[in-house]
Design a protein around this nucleic acid. Structure first.
Lengths: 341, 341
DNA sequence: TAATAAATGACTAGCGCTGTCATCATTATA
DNA sequence: TATAATGATGACAGCGCTAGTCATTTATTA
């Protein structure tokens, strides 16, 4: 029933210590010994006792994922990717939904780390953009990886996975421009999220490249929510000079804009083109379906976890750790920006 | 930095063992000793080492949640509720997304239980409705709680949290009837999910009570997906005798139906009323927003976990364990079924 | 073939907690 | 008041593994 390291050792004809060496991939174990031991582990279906390993080594085999994101699909995708990586490396994932705006969020994170004895942490927005959290984690020496918006790798961002929102937003705006639009409005997400700023910058850069002066009234502050899209679009569509296209900072905002346009009997895409960002499932389920930018969140999460494991694992090869992943979301064209027929 | 049970014992002036007794609320510790120990724990901010407890007691302090549900919001809510309960009882939650249709799903679940040494498991549909999983878990003696569709508590369902889909569906159908509809169609979810059957039964019962013969063409098989709603509604709206109202088995199907109706230039709710089920966030974000039934998923999950802990905890009072929670989703009326003006 | 380095094993001491059993303190019973 | 019966507490071993120290065996190189 219960297979211990002893059984494996006996089965493989080696000592307990050698099995332990293999498990912790310590150097100076011969290749064929490793094979022998691994064969024995497989044959006996050995499951190392995580509790014992934990206790003896006083390191832990779980990483944490803190989230506070209204977009459930994003969270689920992240979890999926993180779990994939965790399974591969024999780690466990501790999830922790919380309120990022809580005044003692830093303490909460530290408590989590202590209580669950986390080996490391993966941070997504908004946590990945809170400098005091990064600072606190650094101080207590807990490795962490941030998934953030950015396009240019740099040493300062060595523990980051970058999402190039700028370029993706540039591409979306360009798509609208190519469709013949020049009065393109932008519905911002939360100011605190740097993704919103990056996307705005991409939008502005695309306009600038065509020599189009950005109309300040066409840039509407807001937040990453349906409601914000409703309000923002309303404001835009009540202008005397309406935009002919709206680029929303994410799909939810875009859905809100769609809702507003419909209320005002504005036909999409004939009278108004709308584009979103994220490619969340409901971007396919609006009417008409939304043009958007696709982020491979599962893959991003996997990479983030892999990056983290390079820091948590003592004997892992760290030589490739300079590779800093950058993901560029891809343009997905759907009916919400179809050429008016 | 690291506070151990030793420190607490010394601080409280008792033996290590007594502290341990307090932690596990074993009987036969005097009241004032308990207080003394708890005061010491609080003063030192003692965090018991889960790994050590695990190892020494060979029981575990984590429960599992397996999911395979396309509805991310549902999963997130479940997690939230489960985590709330876990935190309260000092447990950890191990999440495990997987494919319910995998041929060796039972083995996978058993492996998970073994590998993560789970103290128990919470099952939601579709897993909660797979008898071979329940059987396998019973056989290896791992406690589990199922969240399933049903209205009448019974001893056989002692470890279940029931969702009364029947009554909720009855209420929705009744709402449509009261609006003056009599040609009400029903878009089914997956046959394997008993919720679909229960909701269908509730729909039929409501019709029957009014003496309305159900038109078999108005009952369309399908699955819990947007696409299924699109197809199902299309079929219905191409009938020579169209329904005037559609009750979809969940919001996603309803959104699909909405999409289809729009394609066919059918005005909602003027020409067709549509109702969903679940009250997922996007039921509020369609145009028009969907009438639906609200399930308090966070609370449901909490209760499920509490129920589970009564089985996993050795010294817990089990006397209240006969109480079997039943939740009736509530009717939420929105514009998709507004009286045609 | 000797000299050097690389693998491996035997042994030991915990990691922080729980379980068992022995001990001591208290109360009930005659 | 003595005696048993119970309640409350402590001493100690050990959960399954890691990690360190040396001793021993095996492979590699000059």
């Amino acid at each position: 029933m219960k297979v211990t390291i002893n059984d494996v050792a006996r089965h493989a004809g080696v000592s307990i210590k050698t099995v332990s060496r293999v498990m912790n991939n310590e150097p100076s174990v011969r290749k064929d010994t490793v094979d022998k031991v691994q064969a024995a582990m497989a044959a006996l279906q050995y499951q190392p006792n995580a509790a014992a390993r934990n206790l003896a080594s006083s390191r832990s085999f779980s990483i944490g994922y803190i989230y506070d994101n209204p977009n459930a699909y994003y969270v689920i995708d992240m979890q999926r990717g993180l779990l994939d990586a965790c399974r591969k490396h024999g780690y466990e994932l501790i999830i922790h939904p919380t309120n990022a705006k809580s005044p003692d969020i830093v303490q909460e994170v530290l408590d989590l780390v202590q209580q669950s004895r986390l080996a490391g942490l993966v941070l997504t927005p908004p946590f990945s953009e809170m400098p005091h959290i990064a600072a606190a984690l650094e101080q207590i020496g807990v490795p962490f990886v941030r998934i953030i918006s950015g396009s240019t790798p740099s040493p300062k961002l060595s523990n980051c996975v970058l999402i190039d929102d700028f370029t993706a937003a540039f591409k979306i705006t360009n798509h609208l421009l190519e469709l013949g639009h020049s009065d393109i409005a932008f519905l911002c997400g939360d100011e605190e999220h740097s993704s919103s700023g990056e996307r705005l910058a991409g939008y502005q850069a695309a306009l600038a490249k065509r020599g189009i002066a950005a109309n300040p009234k066409f840039i509407v502050p807001g937040s990453y929510s349906f409601e914000s899209g409703v309000q923002g679009a309303k404001k835009l569509l009540e202008l005397s000079k309406k935009p002919t296209a709206i680029f929303a900072c994410n799909d939810e905002i875009a859905a809100g804009a769609l809702f507003s346009a419909r209320l005002m009997h504005i036909a999409i895409p004939q009278q108004l083109a709308i584009a979103g960002f994220e490619n969340s499932p409901f971007s396919r389920q609006t009417w008409p379906p939304l043009t958007t930018a696709h982020q491979p969140n599962v893959t991003i999460a996997q990479q983030a976890a892999e990056l983290l494991f390079r820091h948590t694992k003592p004997n892992a090869s760290k030589n490739l750790s300079d590779k800093q992943p950058v993901f560029i979301p891809e343009l997905v064209v759907r009916e919400s920006t179809a050429v008016s027929s």
